[in-house]
Write a protein that binds this DNA or RNA. Structure first.
Lengths: 235, 235
DNA sequence: TGTACATCAGTGAACGCGCGTTCACTGATGTAC
DNA sequence: TGTACATCAGTGAACGCGCGTTCACTGATGTAC
């Protein structure tokens, strides 16, 4: 593994610039309108120059999706690491607030990974699935640690989980080697889904007119969610 | 107000057929790919014939969106009416289950109203907003009645609603003449958002791999949600 | 009941545009000897 | 240190396609007298 050559560095920079402009254009035109010709025009190059960097349009889209999944997961991991390990409630709250903030700061990337699929494009699952599960894993890890420490006291109803679901989650934990109890995975998934709905609706402008202050509403909902789990943050 | 003429009936039928084919094509191509030429081709007509029925592409999209909002609201109202007025819990559960079922049965219409906006298209708010609020109103009406009867006992935390949000909702209720307490609107909105997240993620294939049986999971979550409000359905 | 006219559904060619991808090429930058 | 050659970035024209919307038209269906 030698150092990257000058050429390799320039090459990497062009690939990054291409993605940056693609993101910029999706912001105004929508995720489906991603066009190689438009990107090349903006870069002051011919379309064909782009084919040196990405095999075709689908390859560029895949790169954008992977970047988005990883950027989100990085942000969440950073938020999680900004508190001591045993401050479970604070860590979880920080992660959940970071989730919304990232989505609002990068609406296009969020739509790319969680919104309407792009017509005609098919994601290569072997690449996207691992990248996608990193975020959930961050949340579930905190929950599992909190459960182990006894600080997290899930309400009795969490144990009334229908057998179909409990079994499925147990299998999943086994297969992927998560090493967490089913309760942690369930709470993580259920919480993620609730939060996700709020963000999706806010992003598309459906909640603000009803709720008034989406940021305040989000914080209130997330805090309640955590309280109902037995995890109470100080602030 | 005379009867519709033969011509008017035929005209209506063609407009309906146009929308039906548009929906069919969005199902395979994505909501953004709605194309007048493709629709005309499928109908065995020239593109220009369509311009007799819809002023332009945007007008057709608006018609599809209004249809979707109204079909959803009709379905919810029907579900609500299938139980006696005082059976609040059963009515609410029926409405919430109907919401998911409608979304799964009409994924394209659901994406059209709650998914990514279509690039270049701008919805006329004076038409879409009233149609959109019908669904929420159905849920909120049940909650308000349940509150009045004393059968719904919201947890104390519902009254810890941040003033910004409570004030905004109070203004909204006043302005639109909902005639319900703030607690009913808040519970309705919060519940709607949670449910929405689950359905969105299921529709785009993000939850099934994690959850195993989305229908069972949905029922479990909705029931828990209602229990936490003090509304317990029999079945 | 018959006729003249208005209304309406639908045609067909054309405009100007954007798209992804192919192919054969030029000229600059690096590498081996 | 100089030269011959390979690698690589980028060009430019072309193919075949689809799109929304314009315009001037044809022929059938209804309506008024």
């Amino acid at each position: 593994m030698t150092h990257p050559t000058r050429r390799e560095r320039l090459r990497e920079r062009t690939k990054e610039e291409t993605k940056a402009i693609a993101r910029q254009q999706m912001q105004t035109q929508g995720t489906a309108a991603i066009s190689l010709r438009a990107i090349a025009r903006e870069m002051g190059m011919t379309v064909m120059a782009l084919y040196r960097y990405y095999e075709n349009r689908d390859a560029l889209i895949t790169a954008l999706i992977l970047d988005a999944f990883n950027a989100l997961a990085d942000t969440l991991e950073q938020a999680s690491a900004s508190y001591p390990t045993e401050a479970y409630a604070e860590r979880l709250l920080a992660v959940l607030l970071a989730y919304r903030e990232w989505a609002l700061a990068h609406p296009v990337d969020f739509q790319l990974i969680y919104g309407n699929p792009i017509p005609g494009y098919h994601a290569p699952a072997e690449l996207t699935v691992p990248a996608a599960s990193r975020s959930l894993a961050t949340v579930v890890a905190i929950l599992a640690a909190a459960l182990r420490s006894g600080e997290l006291a899930p309400a009795p109803r969490y144990y009334a989980l229908p057998p179909v679901i409990a079994d499925h989650m147990a299998t999943l934990i086994e297969r992927d080697g998560y090493g967490v109890p089913v309760a942690a995975l369930y709470i993580g998934v259920a919480g993620w889904i609730r939060i996700h709905g709020m963000i999706m609706l806010e992003l598309f402008g459906h909640t603000p007119p009803v709720v008034g202050d989406p940021a305040e509403f989000y914080r209130f909902e997330v805090t309640n969610l955590m309280k109902s789990m037995g995890l109470i943050p100080k602030s």
